[in-house]
Amino acid sequence: MPPLIQTSAGLAQAAERLASGSGPIAIDTERASGFRYSGRAYLIQLRRAGAGTLLVDPIPIDDLAPLRAALTGPEWILHAASQDLPCLAELELHPASLFDTELAARLCDFEKVGLASITEQLLGFRLEKQHSAADWSSRPLPHDWLVYAALDVELLLELRGKLAAELAEQGKTAWAEAEFEHVRTAGPPKPRKEPWRRTSGIHKVRGAKALSRVRAVWEARDDLARKLDRAPGKVLPDAAIVEAAVNDPTDFAELMSLPGFRRRGGRTNARLWLAALAEARKL
């Protein structure tokens, strides 16, 4: 189990090890999407032949320049790269070339393309996935979480070799390379139009005025969640937004009569939700 790198001095040494290795570099990240508004990386896992596995905590390290230099040039191996590349780009970490093991498995017509599934199919190892939904923004990171995270890159180098051979056997190497390049250069996804319409349970809301209340409370929640860097559902659940849209409470007592607002976020920010509903009535 490699030590967690949390200092600039430790990162400099790790970057030297990484640069002295050979071949492609396996990379993964851990985010806290179910707990935080942002999609930032709270842990970076790396592995390269001759360098071993490295675990980097980017939060306390001011300058990732040594890591950036070590990662410039070699091919990156990621699983479901489109999920990790945006948070790596936030840290100014960009691949020169890419091999996406999930995409390769799809192109090879594997029925199941999750990392655990294809690792078991091709390499015979079963990965533990019990910490995939953990709050990686919490500190300190428990030892068993770090073990789980390290395993996500432990076999990526071998997995790439198996999948590359399978692509070659199926005559799909050039096709895969073109798809990998598309993922590498695609950039961040475009913002969804009217994302408030994806509120869970919105099918229960009828009429334009009620929908305007969904939008008003959703936008108020989104703005607050962004400021707090908390997942919107942790600030106020979707069910509460739907309750407010259907019932249109006009004061604190009416708002608190709705089950979804009795939790801390609903009560603490009651003035915000009531103000949003009041603005919706003006439309």
Rank of each mutant, 00 (worst) to 15 (best):
residue 122 L to M: 07
residue 206 R to D: 01
residue 181 E to A: 09
residue 213 R to F: 11
residue 165 A to S: 08
residue 121 Q to T: 15
residue 113 V to Y: 05
residue 209 K to C: 11
residue 178 A to H: 14
residue 188 P to E: 14
residue 152 D to C: 09
residue 133 A to D: 10
residue 151 L to N: 14
residue 174 A to N: 05
residue 126 R to Y: 15
residue 187 G to Y: 09
residue 162 K to G: 06
residue 127 L to H: 02
residue 167 L to Y: 01
residue 125 F to C: 15
residue 171 G to Q: 08
residue 188 P to G: 11
residue 127 L to Q: 00
residue 145 W to G: 00
residue 209 K to M: 12
residue 182 H to K: 15
residue 192 R to N: 08
residue 184 R to H: 14
residue 183 V to S: 09
residue 176 A to K: 04
residue 146 L to P: 00
residue 189 P to T: 09
residue 146 L to F: 01
residue 122 L to G: 03
residue 112 K to L: 10
residue 173 T to R: 10
residue 131 H to D: 06
residue 201 G to D: 02
residue 181 E to L: 08
residue 169 E to F: 04
residue 162 K to Q: 14
residue 196 W to Y: 08
residue 153 V to P: 09
residue 178 A to L: 11
residue 155 L to N: 15
residue 126 R to H: 13
residue 112 K to T: 03
residue 185 T to M: 06
residue 159 L to Y: 11
residue 153 V to G: 09
residue 118 I to E: 06
residue 211 L to S: 03
residue 183 V to T: 15
residue 164 A to K: 01
residue 132 S to P: 02
residue 203 H to L: 10
residue 200 S to H: 06
residue 197 R to Q: 04
residue 163 L to S: 03
residue 152 D to V: 02
residue 118 I to R: 04
residue 195 P to V: 11
residue 125 F to W: 15
residue 139 R to F: 02
residue 190 K to G: 10
residue 135 D to E: 07
residue 212 S to E: 15
residue 195 P to M: 05
residue 191 P to H: 12
residue 160 R to H: 15
residue 132 S to L: 12
residue 131 H to C: 04
residue 204 K to N: 06
residue 199 T to Y: 04
residue 150 A to W: 07
residue 153 V to I: 11
residue 161 G to W: 01
residue 183 V to C: 10
residue 144 D to L: 04
residue 187 G to Q: 08
residue 107 L to R: 01
residue 184 R to V: 07
residue 192 R to Q: 13
residue 187 G to N: 04
residue 197 R to H: 03
residue 193 K to V: 13
residue 201 G to A: 05
residue 183 V to I: 15
residue 187 G to C: 05
residue 189 P to I: 13
residue 180 F to A: 04
residue 159 L to R: 07
residue 117 S to N: 03
residue 206 R to Q: 02
residue 127 L to R: 02
residue 125 F to E: 15
residue 121 Q to S: 10
residue 155 L to A: 12
residue 189 P to S: 13
residue 194 E to C: 07
residue 122 L to C: 13
residue 211 L to M: 15
residue 209 K to G: 15
residue 133 A to L: 13
residue 140 P to Q: 08
residue 163 L to W: 06
residue 111 E to Q: 12
residue 128 E to M: 06
residue 131 H to Y: 06
residue 115 L to I: 02
residue 134 A to I: 01
residue 131 H to W: 13
residue 200 S to V: 12
residue 123 L to R: 07
residue 133 A to F: 01
residue 190 K to M: 14
residue 111 E to S: 07
residue 170 Q to T: 08
residue 170 Q to M: 13
residue 180 F to Y: 12
residue 158 E to Y: 14
residue 160 R to D: 13
residue 138 S to Y: 05
residue 166 E to R: 11
residue 159 L to P: 02
residue 203 H to M: 10
residue 151 L to Q: 12
residue 195 P to G: 07
residue 165 A to H: 09
residue 161 G to L: 01
residue 186 A to S: 12
residue 152 D to L: 08
residue 122 L to H: 06
residue 211 L to C: 04
residue 119 T to F: 09
residue 193 K to W: 09
residue 143 H to M: 05
residue 164 A to V: 04
residue 159 L to I: 13
residue 139 R to C: 11
residue 186 A to G: 10
residue 201 G to E: 05
residue 129 K to A: 10
residue 201 G to M: 06
residue 143 H to W: 09
residue 176 A to V: 09
residue 149 A to L: 02
residue 190 K to Q: 07
residue 164 A to M: 14
residue 207 G to L: 00
residue 111 E to V: 03
residue 159 L to A: 04
residue 113 V to L: 04
residue 109 D to N: 06
residue 188 P to K: 12
residue 199 T to H: 05
residue 177 E to I: 00
residue 131 H to L: 11
residue 148 Y to D: 09
